[in-house]
Amino acid sequence: MEPRRRGCCGTGCMILGIVLLAPVLFIGWVVAVQTRVPERLGLRQPPEVRLLGGAPDREAAAALRAELEAAGFSAEGMNLAVLPVKGKDYSLAAAVFDASQGFHFGSSGGGDAMLDSLRRLGTGEAATQYHIGRVAVHYYDEEGRNLVSLTAPTDLIRSYASGQITRDAFLQGIEGQLDLKALFEEAMP
């Protein structure tokens, strides 16, 4: 028995279906990735759990915190941890600045508070003493949303702090993550 052949109309419908389905599948995939569905289902371990799960260095965190507070950062709403990076001989200094918990940069920063916080965490005495190899800073807005996260290796931060590279070159070397929805809402009147 000969297989039934698809007519022109059938083929057209199939192509149209694929064309319509592809964007839907892509958007679905993006939403799943962005909302961390594979991690929630246990299909894969989040990178921060895989690489930053070790015991935090409490002494180093206290020293870095003291440096930031001395520079005028408010103690309120500031959370800090120094975490060994698995497989590396250095640690990550991670700071969360949460405006919803009363955080403010104070007089520090000179109008460039986020980059200033990277610079202070990456080039202070404590950074050298406690082998900080990378810094990450997270800013939470008054609604408690993570508006911006930035990270840079301390080598790059030192180059910027010593004037070897420009601000633009520094920004190019930084990696970041933005809450586009929150930023868009902020920008709207």
């Binding site: 989040p46 921060e48 690489l51 799960g53 990550l92 969360v96 993570n146 990270t151």
Partner: peptide
């Protein structure tokens, strides 16, 4: 870069 990904989500670890 897994290290950068981990750093960008390190606020979860801090929490």
């Amino acid at each position: 870069d897994p290290e950068e990904d981990a750093a960008l989500n390190s606020d979860n670890v801090v929490r």
